[in-house]
Design a protein around this nucleic acid. Structure first.
Lengths: 204, 204, 204, 204
DNA sequence: TATGAATGAGGCTTCATTCAT
DNA sequence: GATGAATGAAGCCTCATTCAT
């Protein structure tokens, strides 16, 4: 209401949103350099000056998309943290849930995710933070005491982020697998490893 | 003398090699678009036409670097296959060895690896092939019968490739970890999972 | 108002036309290779990117000029064919008329004609077609039965095209002769030859 | 003897001649601008500096070829003038002979002729001179008094040059007609015109 | 006589961006 | 809010030509 209640209706807000959406798709598909402003505006049926009415520059709109991704992702994480009531769940189940959420979010915001998680230079930082997040969780006392000691948690965390990215790219966005399937597989491997019969009764 | 019996030589071969090396570093650091021929030649202390004496175009030199990476990587893999005598080794140990080799190769040819494995559009294909390779190995009868049945081998293989990429980026090329360390950690997790006490005596 | 009902107009159409006209003159005078885009735009008082606003490339504008020439020439020929009512005229008189028209057209569109008839690689084809056209006319029954049998009509037709080109170059475009004068002379020679007393009264 | 009697025999003279011949063919086929020194030397199996050992520049070798053409053509014409004993021949028969010689010369020195008569900027001058030559002959008293007075001799001469060029291009160099055939046809038309039986009472 | 290696000069083209309306 | 027209800046590439051997 407050947000959208603009004066009339020649509707600059709509143009802006349209440009943003198209730009997201273009950046996601072609990368930063191979995305041309001229293409974006053509697909949006507006002219180039109109673009600059809403965005300061090509870089600016790209950054806006990065920020959008980061913001949404942050909300997601925060949301997760609130759910922290499930204490009866093991840490790994919680992780599976979070992973599902993240992957579902990637699925629901494909272009944004490709930009903010794969394409953008700032993706490096995002992924680093995500790895740190995961690492921190794995180090949490309640979790850590159950961990096999011979693995470097930092390596696992970072590797997990790599798995997420690659699986999004090759299994999720191709439609081959769903977010829950992927999350479950990832967590299962992380928990038990691949080797059959190695575990006895298991916790679970 | 040893090389090619040239008389003396202001040595074009050297210029070419120099350009190739500098280009590799530039592409690796800045990506394709932000790498300028003008920068490459300036760093090589030659003029632009000299560049075109040895390479047909910017795209051509990039492709040459891609190919170089692919060729070296292929040699590596082939070399590995020869070692296949170690039958007493479990498949996972062999995998650890291979992983070590690959990561060590990434370490020894950092720029090339960044180009061929991360930056280039063809990297997608390289990674897909690598994943297929891994998947095939995991499916090999001798290996497969030991596998925990609840995981999708395709997902694991693809995820593993993602881990490799990310760990190269964040741990290997930063100097934080060595190739054997990473390989060992990866394989260990894959084998046993993270959870302590889940395994009893274990195989090896 | 008359043109296209534009509001006002710094008028891109005009810029385009200007560039096209200047390009025609430049190509006509200096040929394809010695015509530089930089010269064209300087003479048109615009910058180089403006050129590319209206034409895809140097080659493209050249081809546009070629096409323009061919189109106009085709119209001319078609127009002539419509006039075919003059049955009382001898075929040679009709040919004189057509020749006059063609030469007048060359005169009115000097640069275009130089490009499309002399400079362009496609000029070869244009001239071949024109020769075939002429040859066909000479072979038309009504005409052919009056022809002196010892000459190869193909040679005459091709030679006639050569005469047209050369006379345009040396007599028409220099202002030395007019289109009708040239046409009349050409046809007269073709009809009667140079030798006096070979014909008696003749029409003329 | 004097000409070719160079000191030894690593045979620079041969290289020079080879380059000249290849250059002639290249220029003839592709024109001045689309002929690259690099192509010439490659076809001659020498290096670029070798080229500059024998020719000052691209322009210089082109001019040398122009000159070669002009010189040979001049010899031809001079030779013709010597034959001027045939007084019993009509002027037209003498013209046919000369034409044959010129066309035969064009045939024997195809590349040279294409360069000197069609491609080179100086071809304009050559053709002008040839036209003046022809015009002068046509104006010679003995000839002129037989001429039909209604035609402009300048036009005829210039047109004839155009015929020669075009017929060389389309009939001679294609192998469709021989030099004598062409010469005979040209002169016949020029003499009698195309119209059958015109010399008698005239037809129409 | 001949060459491997290198370059000065200059052309074409593209893009993000802005001005004036 | 929107546009038609235009541009500054910069990159890629090619060619004839020369240096040092």
């Amino acid at each position: 209401m407050a947000q959208r209640g603009r004066k009339k209706g020649s509707d600059g807000e709509a143009s802006r949103a349209l440009l943003l959406r198209i730009a997201a798709d273009e950046f996601a598909e072609h990368g930063y350099h191979d995305t041309k402003i001229s293409t974006i505006v053509r697909k949006a049926n507006v002219t180039q000056p109109t673009f600059y009415l809403y965005f300061k520059s090509k870089e600016a709109i790209f950054e806006e998309l990065e920020d959008l991704f980061r913001t949404k992702l942050a909300h997601l994480t925060m949301g997760s943290l609130v759910d922290e009531k499930f204490d009866d769940y093991t840490a790994f189940r919680r992780m599976e849930e979070r992973l599902t959420k993240v992957l579902q979010f990637f699925m629901d915001h494909r272009s944004l995710a490709r930009i903010g998680f794969c394409i953008s230079p700032s993706a490096a930082e995002v992924k680093t933070q995500m790895a740190e997040h995961i690492e921190a969780q794995l180090r949490e006392k309640s979790t850590a005491e159950h961990l096999y000691p011979n693995v470097d948690v930092g390596i696992v965390a970072s590797g997990l982020v790599g798995m997420i990215e690659r699986l999004a790219l090759t299994k999720l966005w191709t439609g081959e697998k769903t977010a829950p399937e992927l999350a479950n597989n990832i967590v299962t491997v992380l928990l038990y490893g691949l080797q059959r019969n190695t575990r006895v009764s298991s916790i679970e």
